[in-house]
C-alpha cells in the first residue's frame, strides 16, 4: 500500500458555487486535482477513488468554509498544493492551507 500524506486545507464556498451540494463539490475537487496532475492518493480496491475528507457540510445555497483533508503520495508543501489547485477551481471556490483553528 502506498504511503499517504494528509494535507489539511480549508475550502471556501461563495457566490455561484453556493448552489452546489457537497456531492457536487467532491466532484469539482476531484477533477481539479486530476487537471493539476498532483500526485494524489487513490483508495485501494476495485474502484479506486481520490480520497478526501470533508469535516462538515454546508447547505445548498449557503456560503461558508469547510475544512477538507486531501491525500497525496508524496510529501508536498500545503501552500504549494493550494497554489496549484486554485487555478483549477471555478470562481466561487477558494482553497487555503488549514492553519488548524477552523476545526473544533
Amino acid at each position: 500500500m502506498n504511503k499517504r500524506y494528509a494535507i489539511p486545507t480549508v475550502l471556501i464556498k461563495r457566490g455561484p458555487m453556493r448552489f452546489f451540494s457537497q456531492i457536487d463539490l467532491t466532484r469539482v475537487i476531484e477533477r481539479a486535482i486530476r487537471r493539476s496532475e498532483l500526485p494524489v492518493y487513490y483508495t485501494q480496491g476495485f474502484t479506486p477513488r481520490i480520497k478526501m475528507s470533508f469535516y462538515g457540510a454546508l447547505k445548498v445555497g449557503a456560503e461558508g468554509r469547510i475544512p477538507l483533508k486531501l491525500y497525496f503520495i508524496e510529501r508536498i508543501d500545503t501552500g504549494e498544493i493550494c497554489a496549484r489547485l486554485q487555478p483549477q477551481l471555478p470562481a466561487g471556490l477558494t482553497i487555503l492551507p488549514d492553519s488548524g483553528d477552523t476545526r473544533g
Binding site: 455561484p16 458555487m17 453556493r18 448552489f19 451540494s21 445548498v60 445555497g61 471555478p90 466561487g92
Partner: peptide, 18 residues
C-alpha cells in the same frame, strides 16, 4: 438571483468548467 428556491439550482448557474 437566489436559485436555491428551486429544485436542482445547479441547472441555472452556467459556470461549468470551460
Amino acid at each position: 438571483m437566489d436559485y436555491s428556491q428551486f429544485q436542482h439550482p445547479q441547472r441555472y448557474v452556467g459556470n461549468e468548467w470551460n
